[in-house]
Design a protein around this nucleic acid. Structure first.
Ligand SMILES: [Mn+2]
Ligand SMILES: [Mn+2]
Ligand SMILES: [Mn+2]
Ligand SMILES: [Mn+2]
Lengths: 215, 215
DNA sequence: AATTAAATTTAGACAAATCTAAAAATAGTT
DNA sequence: AACTATTTTTAGATTTGTCTAAATTTAATT
Protein backbone atom coordinates (compact mmCIF):
# COMPACT_ATOMS: atom_id res chain seq x y z
CA UNK A 1 0.00 0.00 0.00
CA UNK A 2 1.62 3.24 -1.14
CA UNK A 3 1.29 6.61 0.57
CA UNK A 4 -0.72 7.94 -2.33
CA UNK A 5 -3.17 5.05 -2.26
CA UNK A 6 -3.64 5.57 1.47
CA UNK A 7 -4.34 9.26 1.00
CA UNK A 8 -6.94 8.52 -1.65
CA UNK A 9 -8.69 5.95 0.53
CA UNK A 10 -8.80 8.35 3.45
CA UNK A 11 -10.22 11.15 1.29
CA UNK A 12 -12.89 8.90 -0.21
CA UNK A 13 -13.79 7.74 3.30
CA UNK A 14 -14.18 11.32 4.56
CA UNK A 15 -16.19 12.48 1.55
CA UNK A 16 -18.44 9.45 1.78
CA UNK A 17 -19.12 9.39 5.50
CA UNK A 18 -21.79 12.12 5.22
CA UNK A 19 -24.38 10.85 2.77
CA UNK A 20 -24.22 7.32 1.45
CA UNK A 21 -23.57 6.39 -2.17
CA UNK A 22 -20.66 6.99 -4.47
CA UNK A 23 -18.26 9.94 -4.64
CA UNK A 24 -17.58 12.23 -7.59
CA UNK A 25 -14.26 12.18 -9.35
CA UNK A 26 -14.18 15.97 -9.21
CA UNK A 27 -14.90 16.12 -5.49
CA UNK A 28 -11.97 13.83 -4.76
CA UNK A 29 -9.72 15.83 -7.07
CA UNK A 30 -10.64 19.10 -5.40
CA UNK A 31 -10.18 17.72 -1.88
CA UNK A 32 -6.78 16.28 -2.74
CA UNK A 33 -5.66 19.28 -4.77
CA UNK A 34 -5.04 17.13 -7.81
CA UNK A 35 -6.63 16.71 -11.24
CA UNK A 36 -9.70 14.60 -12.10
CA UNK A 37 -7.67 12.55 -14.56
CA UNK A 38 -5.32 11.53 -11.77
CA UNK A 39 -8.29 10.43 -9.70
CA UNK A 40 -9.53 8.24 -12.53
CA UNK A 41 -6.12 6.60 -12.80
CA UNK A 42 -6.04 5.87 -9.09
CA UNK A 43 -9.65 4.66 -9.09
CA UNK A 44 -8.68 1.96 -11.56
CA UNK A 45 -5.72 0.92 -9.48
CA UNK A 46 -7.69 0.77 -6.24
CA UNK A 47 -10.50 -1.13 -7.96
CA UNK A 48 -7.93 -3.59 -9.24
CA UNK A 49 -6.88 -4.17 -5.63
CA UNK A 50 -10.44 -4.60 -4.44
CA UNK A 51 -10.43 -1.49 -2.27
CA UNK A 52 -13.02 0.56 -4.16
CA UNK A 53 -16.05 -0.07 -6.33
CA UNK A 54 -15.57 1.71 -9.62
CA UNK A 55 -17.47 1.68 -12.85
CA UNK A 56 -16.80 4.27 -15.54
CA UNK A 57 -18.80 7.46 -15.06
CA UNK A 58 -20.54 5.89 -12.04
CA UNK A 59 -18.48 7.38 -9.23
CA UNK A 60 -16.32 5.70 -6.61
CA UNK A 61 -17.12 4.04 -3.29
CA UNK A 62 -15.11 2.05 -0.77
CA UNK A 63 -15.46 -1.71 -0.50
CA UNK A 64 -15.48 -3.31 2.95
CA UNK A 65 -11.74 -3.86 2.60
CA UNK A 66 -11.34 -0.21 1.58
CA UNK A 67 -13.28 1.01 4.61
CA UNK A 68 -11.18 -1.16 6.86
CA UNK A 69 -7.96 0.25 5.43
CA UNK A 70 -9.26 3.84 5.58
CA UNK A 71 -10.24 3.39 9.21
CA UNK A 72 -6.78 2.17 10.12
CA UNK A 73 -5.27 5.30 8.57
CA UNK A 74 -7.76 7.56 10.31
CA UNK A 75 -6.94 5.75 13.55
CA UNK A 76 -3.25 6.45 13.08
CA UNK A 77 -3.83 10.05 12.08
CA UNK A 78 -5.92 10.82 15.14
CA UNK A 79 -3.73 8.93 17.58
CA UNK A 80 -0.70 10.86 16.33
CA UNK A 81 -2.59 14.15 16.65
CA UNK A 82 -3.47 13.24 20.20
CA UNK A 83 0.14 12.34 20.93
CA UNK A 84 1.39 15.64 19.56
CA UNK A 85 -0.99 17.63 21.75
CA UNK A 86 -0.83 15.50 24.89
CA UNK A 87 2.83 14.55 24.98
CA UNK A 88 4.63 17.17 22.89
CA UNK A 89 2.58 20.27 23.75
CA UNK A 90 1.56 21.06 20.20
CA UNK A 91 -1.40 23.41 19.79
CA UNK A 92 -4.46 21.84 18.16
CA UNK A 93 -3.95 23.92 15.03
CA UNK A 94 -0.41 22.62 14.50
CA UNK A 95 -0.96 18.88 14.45
CA UNK A 96 -2.76 18.11 11.21
CA UNK A 97 0.11 18.59 8.79
CA UNK A 98 2.51 16.46 10.82
CA UNK A 99 -0.10 13.75 11.40
CA UNK A 100 -0.62 13.71 7.65
CA UNK A 101 2.90 12.32 7.41
CA UNK A 102 2.94 10.18 10.55
CA UNK A 103 -0.26 8.33 9.57
CA UNK A 104 1.74 6.50 6.87
CA UNK A 105 4.31 4.91 9.17
CA UNK A 106 3.97 1.14 8.94
CA UNK A 107 4.20 -0.63 12.28
CA UNK A 108 1.28 -2.21 14.04
CA UNK A 109 3.24 -2.45 17.26
CA UNK A 110 4.04 1.25 17.12
CA UNK A 111 0.43 2.33 16.89
CA UNK A 112 -0.76 -0.09 19.56
CA UNK A 113 1.92 1.08 21.97
CA UNK A 114 1.11 4.69 21.17
CA UNK A 115 -2.55 3.97 21.93
CA UNK A 116 -1.47 2.49 25.25
CA UNK A 117 0.81 5.44 26.12
CA UNK A 118 -2.11 7.80 25.51
CA UNK A 119 -4.40 5.59 27.64
CA UNK A 120 -6.65 4.53 24.76
CA UNK A 121 -8.18 7.92 23.95
CA UNK A 122 -11.66 7.97 22.40
CA UNK A 123 -11.43 11.39 20.75
CA UNK A 124 -8.70 13.40 19.07
CA UNK A 125 -7.86 17.07 19.81
CA UNK A 126 -10.59 18.25 17.42
CA UNK A 127 -13.26 16.08 19.02
CA UNK A 128 -13.23 13.49 16.25
CA UNK A 129 -13.60 9.84 17.32
CA UNK A 130 -10.54 7.58 17.19
CA UNK A 131 -11.32 4.17 15.65
CA UNK A 132 -10.14 1.19 17.68
CA UNK A 133 -7.92 -1.65 16.46
CA UNK A 134 -10.91 -3.31 14.83
CA UNK A 135 -12.34 -0.16 13.33
CA UNK A 136 -15.07 0.42 15.90
CA UNK A 137 -15.72 3.94 17.19
CA UNK A 138 -18.50 5.98 18.70
CA UNK A 139 -19.29 9.36 17.22
CA UNK A 140 -20.42 12.01 19.70
CA UNK A 141 -24.15 12.65 19.68
CA UNK A 142 -23.67 16.22 18.57
CA UNK A 143 -25.35 19.14 16.80
CA UNK A 144 -24.03 22.01 14.74
CA UNK A 145 -24.22 25.24 16.69
CA UNK A 146 -25.84 26.86 13.65
CA UNK A 147 -28.78 24.44 13.76
CA UNK A 148 -29.72 24.90 17.40
CA UNK A 149 -32.47 27.31 18.56
CA UNK A 150 -32.02 30.42 20.68
CA UNK A 151 -31.76 29.45 24.33
CA UNK A 152 -30.03 26.15 23.62
CA UNK A 153 -26.93 25.39 25.64
CA UNK A 154 -24.36 22.64 25.67
CA UNK A 155 -20.71 21.72 25.70
CA UNK A 156 -18.42 22.22 22.72
CA UNK A 157 -17.41 18.70 21.67
CA UNK A 158 -15.86 19.21 18.27
CA UNK A 159 -15.16 21.28 15.18
CA UNK A 160 -16.09 20.63 11.58
CA UNK A 161 -13.31 22.72 10.06
CA UNK A 162 -9.86 21.75 11.35
CA UNK A 163 -7.96 24.40 9.41
CA UNK A 164 -5.30 26.30 11.25
CA UNK A 165 -7.03 29.61 10.51
CA UNK A 166 -10.32 28.50 12.03
CA UNK A 167 -8.75 26.91 15.11
CA UNK A 168 -6.71 30.04 15.76
CA UNK A 169 -9.91 32.09 15.55
CA UNK A 170 -11.42 29.81 18.20
CA UNK A 171 -8.33 30.18 20.41
CA UNK A 172 -8.57 33.95 20.17
CA UNK A 173 -12.16 33.89 21.32
CA UNK A 174 -11.50 31.28 23.98
CA UNK A 175 -13.65 28.64 22.39
CA UNK A 176 -12.27 25.15 23.01
CA UNK A 177 -13.47 21.60 23.46
CA UNK A 178 -15.20 21.20 26.78
CA UNK A 179 -16.34 24.85 27.02
CA UNK A 180 -20.02 25.42 27.88
CA UNK A 181 -21.80 27.51 25.25
CA UNK A 182 -25.28 29.04 25.32
CA UNK A 183 -27.12 30.75 22.45
CA UNK A 184 -28.34 34.09 23.80
CA UNK A 185 -29.69 35.45 20.54
CA UNK A 186 -29.75 35.10 16.78
CA UNK A 187 -29.58 37.88 14.18
CA UNK A 188 -32.21 37.13 11.53
CA UNK A 189 -30.48 39.21 8.84
CA UNK A 190 -27.16 37.34 8.59
CA UNK A 191 -27.63 34.42 10.95
CA UNK A 192 -24.93 35.58 13.35
CA UNK A 193 -25.23 34.30 16.91
CA UNK A 194 -24.83 36.04 20.23
CA UNK A 195 -23.24 33.51 22.58
CA UNK A 196 -22.30 33.00 26.17
CA UNK A 197 -18.96 31.19 26.11
CA UNK A 198 -17.92 30.19 29.61
CA UNK A 199 -18.30 33.44 31.51
CA UNK A 200 -17.88 35.75 28.52
CA UNK A 201 -20.25 36.91 25.80
CA UNK A 202 -19.35 36.98 22.11
CA UNK A 203 -21.00 37.33 18.75
CA UNK A 204 -19.98 34.93 16.01
CA UNK A 205 -20.90 34.83 12.33
CA UNK A 206 -23.08 32.14 10.78
CA UNK A 207 -20.02 30.74 9.06
CA UNK A 208 -18.33 30.18 12.41
CA UNK A 209 -21.46 28.62 13.89
CA UNK A 210 -21.57 26.14 11.01
CA UNK A 211 -18.28 24.66 12.17
CA UNK A 212 -18.78 24.13 15.90
CA UNK A 213 -20.41 21.03 17.37
CA UNK A 214 -22.33 21.12 20.64
CA UNK A 215 -23.64 18.33 22.85
CA UNK B 1 14.62 16.68 -0.24
CA UNK B 2 13.15 13.28 -1.14
CA UNK B 3 13.21 10.18 1.03
CA UNK B 4 15.57 8.48 -1.37
CA UNK B 5 17.99 11.39 -1.38
CA UNK B 6 17.98 11.38 2.41
CA UNK B 7 18.72 7.66 2.53
CA UNK B 8 21.65 8.08 0.17
CA UNK B 9 23.12 10.94 2.20
CA UNK B 10 22.82 8.94 5.40
CA UNK B 11 24.47 5.90 3.85
CA UNK B 12 27.33 7.95 2.42
CA UNK B 13 27.78 9.58 5.82
CA UNK B 14 27.98 6.23 7.60
CA UNK B 15 30.34 4.69 5.07
CA UNK B 16 32.58 7.73 5.17
CA UNK B 17 32.78 8.32 8.89
CA UNK B 18 35.42 5.62 9.34
CA UNK B 19 38.33 6.54 7.10
CA UNK B 20 38.40 9.85 5.31
CA UNK B 21 38.22 10.27 1.55
CA UNK B 22 35.59 9.33 -1.00
CA UNK B 23 33.23 6.37 -1.07
CA UNK B 24 32.93 3.68 -3.73
CA UNK B 25 29.88 3.45 -5.91
CA UNK B 26 29.74 -0.28 -5.25
CA UNK B 27 29.96 0.10 -1.49
CA UNK B 28 26.97 2.44 -1.47
CA UNK B 29 25.02 0.11 -3.75
CA UNK B 30 25.70 -2.88 -1.54
CA UNK B 31 24.78 -1.04 1.65
CA UNK B 32 21.53 0.22 0.16
CA UNK B 33 20.69 -3.02 -1.58
CA UNK B 34 20.49 -1.31 -4.93
CA UNK B 35 22.52 -1.34 -8.16
CA UNK B 36 25.70 0.64 -8.88
CA UNK B 37 24.04 2.32 -11.85
CA UNK B 38 21.33 3.70 -9.57
CA UNK B 39 24.03 5.09 -7.28
CA UNK B 40 25.65 6.88 -10.19
CA UNK B 41 22.31 8.44 -11.14
CA UNK B 42 21.75 9.67 -7.60
CA UNK B 43 25.34 10.89 -7.30
CA UNK B 44 24.72 13.21 -10.23
CA UNK B 45 21.52 14.52 -8.72
CA UNK B 46 23.05 15.14 -5.31
CA UNK B 47 26.09 16.80 -6.88
CA UNK B 48 23.70 19.05 -8.82
CA UNK B 49 22.20 20.11 -5.49
CA UNK B 50 25.59 20.73 -3.91
CA UNK B 51 25.26 17.94 -1.36
CA UNK B 52 28.07 15.67 -2.61
CA UNK B 53 31.36 16.02 -4.42
CA UNK B 54 31.29 13.81 -7.44
CA UNK B 55 33.59 13.39 -10.39
CA UNK B 56 33.28 10.45 -12.74
CA UNK B 57 35.17 7.37 -11.57
CA UNK B 58 36.51 9.36 -8.59
CA UNK B 59 34.07 8.26 -5.92
CA UNK B 60 31.61 10.26 -3.86
CA UNK B 61 31.99 12.36 -0.71
CA UNK B 62 29.67 14.67 1.21
CA UNK B 63 30.02 18.44 1.01
CA UNK B 64 29.59 20.49 4.18
CA UNK B 65 25.94 20.96 3.28
CA UNK B 66 25.66 17.20 2.72
CA UNK B 67 27.17 16.42 6.12
CA UNK B 68 24.80 18.85 7.76
CA UNK B 69 21.79 17.22 6.13
CA UNK B 70 23.03 13.72 6.94
CA UNK B 71 23.53 14.66 10.58
CA UNK B 72 20.00 15.95 10.85
CA UNK B 73 18.68 12.63 9.56
CA UNK B 74 20.92 10.66 11.92
CA UNK B 75 19.69 12.88 14.75
CA UNK B 76 16.09 12.11 13.90
CA UNK B 77 16.77 8.38 13.50
CA UNK B 78 18.45 8.08 16.89
CA UNK B 79 15.97 10.27 18.75
CA UNK B 80 13.11 8.16 17.40
CA UNK B 81 14.93 4.97 18.40
CA UNK B 82 15.36 6.37 21.88
CA UNK B 83 11.69 7.33 22.01
CA UNK B 84 10.60 3.86 20.98
CA UNK B 85 12.67 2.23 23.70
CA UNK B 86 12.13 4.77 26.48
CA UNK B 87 8.49 5.68 25.96
CA UNK B 88 6.94 2.78 24.07
CA UNK B 89 8.85 -0.14 25.60
CA UNK B 90 10.29 -1.43 22.35
CA UNK B 91 13.26 -3.77 22.64
CA UNK B 92 16.52 -2.43 21.22
CA UNK B 93 16.40 -4.92 18.35
CA UNK B 94 12.95 -3.75 17.22
CA UNK B 95 13.54 -0.05 16.72
CA UNK B 96 15.74 0.28 13.66
CA UNK B 97 13.20 -0.55 10.98
CA UNK B 98 10.57 1.80 12.36
CA UNK B 99 13.10 4.60 12.89
CA UNK B 100 14.11 4.12 9.28
CA UNK B 101 10.65 5.42 8.38
CA UNK B 102 10.25 7.99 11.15
CA UNK B 103 13.55 9.70 10.32
CA UNK B 104 11.94 11.13 7.17
CA UNK B 105 9.10 12.99 8.89
CA UNK B 106 9.50 16.68 8.16
CA UNK B 107 8.88 18.91 11.18
CA UNK B 108 11.56 20.73 13.06
CA UNK B 109 9.21 21.42 15.94
CA UNK B 110 8.39 17.73 16.21
CA UNK B 111 11.98 16.67 16.59
CA UNK B 112 12.86 19.45 19.05
CA UNK B 113 9.87 18.61 21.22
CA UNK B 114 10.77 14.93 21.06
CA UNK B 115 14.30 15.78 22.17
CA UNK B 116 12.82 17.70 25.10
CA UNK B 117 10.42 14.88 26.04
CA UNK B 118 13.38 12.49 26.14
CA UNK B 119 15.41 14.99 28.23
CA UNK B 120 18.00 15.65 25.54
CA UNK B 121 19.60 12.19 25.41
CA UNK B 122 23.25 11.97 24.35
CA UNK B 123 23.19 8.34 23.16
CA UNK B 124 20.68 6.09 21.42
CA UNK B 125 19.73 2.56 22.56
CA UNK B 126 22.72 1.09 20.71
CA UNK B 127 25.19 3.47 22.33
CA UNK B 128 25.52 5.67 19.24
CA UNK B 129 25.79 9.42 19.85
CA UNK B 130 22.79 11.60 19.01
CA UNK B 131 23.79 14.77 17.14
CA UNK B 132 22.40 18.00 18.57
CA UNK B 133 20.38 20.62 16.68
CA UNK B 134 23.54 22.07 15.22
CA UNK B 135 25.13 18.74 14.37
CA UNK B 136 27.50 18.58 17.32
CA UNK B 137 27.97 15.28 19.17
CA UNK B 138 30.53 13.50 21.28
CA UNK B 139 31.46 9.94 20.38
CA UNK B 140 32.25 7.67 23.32
CA UNK B 141 35.96 7.06 23.87
CA UNK B 142 35.59 3.38 23.22
CA UNK B 143 37.46 0.25 22.07
CA UNK B 144 36.39 -2.88 20.29
CA UNK B 145 36.33 -5.82 22.67
CA UNK B 146 38.28 -7.83 20.11
CA UNK B 147 41.18 -5.39 20.24
CA UNK B 148 41.70 -5.33 24.01
CA UNK B 149 44.28 -7.54 25.80
CA UNK B 150 43.55 -10.31 28.26
CA UNK B 151 42.84 -8.85 31.68
CA UNK B 152 41.23 -5.70 30.32
CA UNK B 153 37.92 -4.68 31.80
CA UNK B 154 35.35 -1.98 31.15
CA UNK B 155 31.73 -1.12 30.59
CA UNK B 156 29.83 -2.05 27.46
CA UNK B 157 28.96 1.28 25.82
CA UNK B 158 27.86 0.30 22.35
CA UNK B 159 27.52 -2.18 19.52
CA UNK B 160 28.90 -2.03 16.01
CA UNK B 161 26.32 -4.33 14.45
CA UNK B 162 22.76 -3.22 15.16
CA UNK B 163 21.08 -6.12 13.38
CA UNK B 164 18.19 -7.77 15.12
CA UNK B 165 19.96 -11.14 15.07
CA UNK B 166 23.05 -9.80 16.83
CA UNK B 167 21.10 -7.81 19.43
CA UNK B 168 19.01 -10.85 20.25
CA UNK B 169 22.17 -12.86 20.73
CA UNK B 170 23.37 -10.23 23.20
CA UNK B 171 20.04 -10.33 25.03
CA UNK B 172 20.27 -14.09 25.34
CA UNK B 173 23.70 -13.84 26.91
CA UNK B 174 22.71 -10.88 29.08
CA UNK B 175 25.07 -8.48 27.42
CA UNK B 176 23.67 -4.97 27.39
CA UNK B 177 24.82 -1.38 27.47
CA UNK B 178 26.14 -0.49 30.92
CA UNK B 179 27.22 -4.06 31.77
CA UNK B 180 30.76 -4.47 33.15
CA UNK B 181 32.85 -6.88 31.09
CA UNK B 182 36.26 -8.36 31.77
CA UNK B 183 38.45 -10.43 29.46
CA UNK B 184 39.48 -13.55 31.38
CA UNK B 185 41.22 -15.32 28.52
CA UNK B 186 41.72 -15.51 24.79
CA UNK B 187 41.86 -18.63 22.58
CA UNK B 188 44.81 -18.25 20.23
CA UNK B 189 43.41 -20.69 17.65
CA UNK B 190 40.16 -18.91 16.72
CA UNK B 191 40.36 -15.68 18.71
CA UNK B 192 37.37 -16.51 20.89
CA UNK B 193 37.25 -14.76 24.26
CA UNK B 194 36.42 -16.01 27.71
CA UNK B 195 34.58 -13.19 29.47
CA UNK B 196 33.19 -12.21 32.81
CA UNK B 197 29.90 -10.44 32.08
CA UNK B 198 28.44 -8.96 35.26
CA UNK B 199 28.57 -11.93 37.62
CA UNK B 200 28.52 -14.64 34.96
CA UNK B 201 31.17 -16.15 32.74
CA UNK B 202 30.73 -16.72 29.01
CA UNK B 203 32.79 -17.53 25.96
CA UNK B 204 32.13 -15.53 22.81
CA UNK B 205 33.50 -15.94 19.30
CA UNK B 206 35.85 -13.49 17.68
CA UNK B 207 33.03 -12.35 15.41
CA UNK B 208 30.96 -11.36 18.41
CA UNK B 209 33.89 -9.57 20.05
CA UNK B 210 34.37 -7.51 16.88
CA UNK B 211 30.97 -5.92 17.41
CA UNK B 212 31.03 -4.87 21.06
CA UNK B 213 32.47 -1.58 22.31
CA UNK B 214 33.99 -1.19 25.75
CA UNK B 215 34.99 1.86 27.71
C1' DA C 1 53.42 -3.32 -21.96
C1' DA C 2 49.72 -6.11 -22.93
C1' DT C 3 46.04 -8.58 -21.05
C1' DT C 4 42.57 -9.58 -17.84
C1' DA C 5 39.56 -8.35 -14.15
C1' DA C 6 36.88 -5.18 -11.56
C1' DA C 7 34.55 -0.97 -10.96
C1' DT C 8 31.91 2.53 -12.95
C1' DT C 9 29.17 4.86 -16.21
C1' DT C 10 25.96 5.17 -20.17
C1' DA C 11 21.96 4.03 -22.89
C1' DG C 12 17.60 2.58 -22.99
C1' DA C 13 13.61 0.66 -20.56
C1' DC C 14 10.07 0.48 -16.90
C1' DA C 15 6.60 1.40 -13.04
C1' DA C 16 4.36 4.93 -10.20
C1' DA C 17 2.11 9.10 -9.94
C1' DT C 18 1.12 12.98 -11.92
C1' DC C 19 -0.12 16.47 -15.66
C1' DT C 20 -2.31 18.72 -20.22
C1' DA C 21 -5.25 18.57 -23.98
C1' DA C 22 -8.65 16.27 -26.43
C1' DA C 23 -12.50 13.00 -26.69
C1' DA C 24 -16.53 10.83 -24.75
C1' DA C 25 -20.38 10.44 -21.68
C1' DT C 26 -23.76 12.40 -18.70
C1' DA C 27 -26.68 16.05 -16.99
C1' DG C 28 -29.21 20.24 -17.60
C1' DT C 29 -31.85 23.52 -20.47
C1' DT C 30 -34.29 25.52 -23.93
C1' DA D 1 -35.61 16.32 -28.95
C1' DA D 2 -31.74 19.06 -29.73
C1' DC D 3 -28.34 21.79 -27.89
C1' DT D 4 -25.17 23.21 -24.25
C1' DA D 5 -22.54 22.73 -20.22
C1' DT D 6 -20.43 19.81 -16.98
C1' DT D 7 -18.23 15.76 -15.65
C1' DT D 8 -15.36 12.10 -16.60
C1' DT D 9 -12.23 9.45 -19.20
C1' DT D 10 -8.51 8.65 -22.59
C1' DA D 11 -4.16 9.44 -24.89
C1' DG D 12 0.19 10.91 -24.57
C1' DA D 13 3.91 13.31 -21.97
C1' DT D 14 6.75 14.14 -17.67
C1' DT D 15 9.32 13.29 -13.33
C1' DT D 16 11.48 10.25 -9.99
C1' DG D 17 13.77 6.32 -8.97
C1' DT D 18 14.93 2.16 -10.38
C1' DC D 19 16.66 -1.68 -13.44
C1' DT D 20 19.43 -4.52 -17.31
C1' DA D 21 22.79 -4.83 -20.63
C1' DA D 22 26.45 -2.87 -22.93
C1' DA D 23 30.32 0.29 -23.09
C1' DT D 24 34.01 2.62 -20.80
C1' DT D 25 37.50 3.53 -17.45
C1' DT D 26 40.55 2.16 -13.88
C1' DA D 27 43.11 -1.40 -11.37
C1' DA D 28 45.54 -5.69 -11.17
C1' DT D 29 48.26 -9.37 -13.23
C1' DT D 30 50.89 -11.65 -16.10
MN1 LIG E 1 -1.30 11.61 4.54
MN1 LIG F 1 -8.10 15.70 13.84
MN1 LIG G 1 19.36 2.48 13.89
MN1 LIG H 1 15.26 5.70 5.93
Amino acid sequence: MTRSEENYLKTIFHLGSGDEGSINTNAIAEQMETKPSSVTDMAKKLAEKGLVNYKKYQGISLTDAGVKTALSIVRKHRLWETFLVEKLDFAWDEVHEVAEQLEHIKSEKLIDKLDQLLKFPKYDPHGDPIPGKNGEFQEHNKDLLSELPVGAHGICVGVKDSSSAFLQYLDKHEISIGKPIQILGKEAFDGSLHLKIGEREHTVSHQIACNIYLK
